[in-house]
Amino acid sequence: MTATEQPLLVAEGLSKNYGARIGCRDVSLEVYPGEVLAVVGESGSGKSTLLSLLSTELAPTSGRVSYRLRDGALTDLASLGAAERRLLMRTDWGFVRQNPAEGLRMAVSAGGNVGERLMAVGWRHYGNIREEALDWLGRVEIAGDRIDDDPRAFSGGMRQRLQIARNLVTRPRLVFMDEPTGGLDVSVQARLLDLIRGLVTDLGLAVIIVTHDLAVARLLSHRMVVMRQGRVIETGITDQVLDDPREPYTQLLVSSVLAV
């Protein structure tokens, strides 16, 4: 990442209210190509709302999100039609969810899960789709002979790896991740984080990852933002924020992790 590079995604003044409750308040941020940005905070801090806003799953009460399309133009996502936005979501973006049941088709085989995006963009050769699916299963360390099993037969870690393969098969430039290691055993988490780190580097992916786990942020991200009560209270290079937090709340977060 160089300073001369232009941002891939820009959020300006994003706010979201749920009735009287505030989900997100005046958030602005930028993500650059190949950069991993971690959004950290406690549950209820608004980080999941922010992720939904950035990925256009939720419409903001105010503010906007812009994305640099493949033609190089930074475009307000609200100005795209439904068809363009959906095409973007299933080709140039990925979304890895904490609960694999939300990110996978649980009753569809692993091969079908990976192949869906390919078929959605017009692949119509069964043999080629299968070959590509096999290749991606290999990259996420799922044995090829599991290609016809459905994810219900998979362990938690395997399901997350399958979700990643399903998302990356169209070579997206930006992937959203919502607590991708949540609920997994520590050893499984470590393996998954290694895998994600490798893929991100190999493919030059930009990632926006939401996590409550500062260790995950430390391991994966270049930069991080800290959220509290719907606001971004601190932002910076990950190591700097974690080693030398400025805000008292961030200090508390960091020290509580260290204390455990």
């Binding site: 439904a82 068809a83 959906r86 299933r90 088709r105 569809v108 091969g111 079908g112 869906e116």
Partner: peptide, 22 residues
């Protein structure tokens, strides 16, 4: 309704893919 409007028929092929795989 959305899927028809946007001619997103990938899902239909997933079903056929599953048939062949199984």
């Amino acid at each position: 309704r959305q899927l028809h409007a946007l001619a997103e028929y990938g899902l239909m092929h997933v079903k056929l893919y599953e048939d062949i795989a199984r």
